[in-house]
Each structure stands twice: as structure tokens, then as C-alpha cells.
Nucleic acid binder design. Structure first.
Length: 296
DNA sequence: CACTTGACCTGTCCGC
DNA sequence: TGCGGACAGGTCAAGT
């Protein structure tokens, strides 16, 4: 999915909708990959507990329980967390919803609350997961140990970003941006969008990007992530927020999935699609040119 | 270590 | 209409 802005949008929705709710039961439709914990764990550490907070680190959601356990959730490519009140989705639901009546065939887990409302974890491709950990152990999870800084925190300066990217001088700037141990939360959409903003070709070796260009890239990345959160994230295919609604950032995208359309800076130049770091990549061939050093 | 590639899944779209 | 292949917001475990 779901990159930083989408996960943050889900987080904000859940913080509003489920904090304070008491968990009555958990249904697991697909295990062990989507939900590796045992029914005994659920009985002991989840049933009867209250949700006390919903936080985010990189693309991971952290749902705190009053039992001092935590749901750690990764939506990967197609995961959704959708809260449904007493009235089911489907007929009569807001028209920007992509969700029909739940559970559906993509539902992997559902959490039923004592007020008869439900939080559904849906995931078409089954890459995502929900894992239960003792809260005290979460900082020791391998991912938490190696994940990079949050790009929207105040201390994420251009110098911090450049310092981290310089450790990956021998790979492409796009691969470095996508590396969660370098910067937290950047995925394919916002890598392409920020590189277009900074006029850097995604296949440029990091060592061939100047410090001045990295400073521009920093500002572009921070502003595009903030704008996307403001727009409720990007709905490319399956992403929805905690109420089943789409995000609108794709209406503001400059290059992502805009191949064969005009570059916003060059009305007569078409966006091209290529493959960089194994991912579909969108560029303006005039704004974003590979430096000769990288070409060698 | 740093880096690249394929695998994990299901669904959709496109060409034959 | 059906079939095969490529591709899709993300990581991982392997390989070099």
C-alpha cells in the first residue's frame, strides 16, 4: 500500500474511531501468515482489553492495548483496515467508498468490539500481516532496530537525509529512497513524485547527485508527503482509509501513473514509464536526465 | 558489508 | 470467450 501518507491517514481514522473500544472477540479467516498468533494468545492478551492508542512507525501501525500488548500491522501492497459501525457498508454507504459488505473474500482478520462495531483487516494479496507482541518487546523487533528516521519529524533536516543517502552512494537514488533503513515510509509513488520535483533521474547513482540536489530532494519529499496526507493519501487501486474511503492525491500527482500524459512543466512533453530498482518508474525525459557520470 | 534479483499472492488488463 | 504473460502501492531471503 500504502506508503507513509496512506498509513498515516489510516492511523488518524483509527485513532478517532477505535481508541477506547473494548475488544469482545477476534475472528481469523486466514492464518498463520496474516495472523500468526494462536487463539490462546488472543484469549489471554486480547479479549476484554481496551484499545488505548494507535501510532505509526514508517509504514507500520501500532495498536496499543490496555493489556500491555500491541497489534503490529503491515498493510504491504493491498492491506486495508476498515472500521464498520452497526450499519454495514454496501447500500447507502458514502459514494466514495470502495468497500462492499464486509467480511468479503479478502477479509483475513476481524476485531469485534463490545459495542457491536467491527474493525476488518482485508488484504487481497495476502502479503500484509497483523502480529501481537508484548508492548515492551516492540522496540526490539528487527524492523524497529533498523528502520530510518521519520521524514516528517522536525529533526529530519536536509543534512540528515543527505548523510544517510551517502551511505548508499553506489546504488540508484530511487533504490536508496525506497530503502526503509535509509528513510522511513517512502514507497514507489512518493519516490517518483519527489524525484520529479527535484528534477533528478531515478536511475542516477547517489554519488552523482550533488548536495544541492539532495537538499532540493529533501524539500520536495517532505512537501509531497505532507500534501498527500492532506489529500487523504493516494488510491491507485485498493487503498482506502479506516472508513472505506479513497484518497485523492492521485488527482494531484505530477508523474506517478501519468505515462503518456503531459509533464506539468512541459505541455508538449509526455511522461515516460521505465523500470528502475525493479519498480515501475515515471519520469519527464526533459526534466530528469541521467548525468554522464552515471551513464559510464 | 553493499547491492540485485526473485519470491511471496491474487486480480486485472492486454494481446493473441 | 479463453489463455498466457506482465504487472500492481512492499518487503525478505537468497544470490553475486
Amino acid at each position: 500500500m500504502p506508503e507513509l501518507p496512506e498509513v498515516e491517514t489510516v492511523r488518524r481514522g483509527l485513532a478517532r474511531l477505535v481508541v477506547g473500544k473494548q475488544i469482545a472477540s477476534v475472528s481469523v479467516y486466514e492464518s498463520p501468515k496474516s495472523f500468526p498468533n494462536s487463539p490462546e494468545d488472543v484469549e489471554q492478551f486480547v479479549r476484554g482489553a481496551t484499545i488505548t492508542a494507535v501510532n505509526r512507525r514508517a509504514k507500520v501501525l501500532l495498536v496499543s492495548l490496555s493489556s500491555d500488548y500491541m497489534f503490529v500491522i503491515h498493510l504491504k501492497m493491498t492491506g486495508q483496515l476498515v472500521y464498520v459501525g452497526k450499519e454495514r457498508f454496501g447500500a447507502g454507504h458514502p459514494n466514495d467508498s470502495l468497500i462492499g459488505v464486509l467480511p468479503d473474500r479478502s477479509t483475513r482478520v476481524s476485531i469485534h468490539f463490545s459495542d457491536d462495531t467491527t474493525l476488518f483487516f482485508n488484504d487481497q494479496r495476502k502479503f500484509g500481516w497483523v502480529k501481537l507482541y508484548p508492548t515492551i518487546e516492540v522496540p526490539n523487533i528487527d524492523f524497529m532496530q533498523k528502520v530510518g528516521p521519520e521524514p516528517l519529524e522536525d529533526d529530519f533536516t536536509a543534512a540528515v537525509m543527505a548523510g544517510r543517502l551517502r551511505h548508499r552512494n553506489n546504488t540508484t537514488i530511487k533504490a536508496a529512497l525506497l530503502d526503509q533503513s535509509v528513510i522511513a515510509g517512502v514507497g514507489n509513488i512518493y519516490a517518483d513524485e519527489s524525484l520529479w520535483g527535484a528534477k533528478i533521474h531515478p536511475a542516477t547513482r547517489v554519488r552523482d547527485v550533488s548536495d544541492a540536489q539532495l537538499a532540493v530532494l529533501h524539500d520536495e519529499l517532505v512537501s509531497v508527503l505532507a500534501l498527500s496526507i492532506e489529500k487523504g493519501g493516494s488510491t491507485n487501486h485498493t487503498y482506502v482509509n479506516a472508513e472505506g474511503q479513497r484518497g485523492s492525491y492521485m488527482d494531484f500527482a505530477r508523474v506517478f501513473r501519468r505515462d503518456e500524459l503531459a509533464c506539468p512543466r512541459h505541455p508538449d512533453v509526455l511522461i515516460e514509464k521505465l523500470r528502475v530498482a525493479g519498480r515501475g518508474t515515471h519520469i519527464c525525459p526533459v526534466c530528469q536526465v541521467l548525468p554522464t557520470a552515471t551513464l559510464r
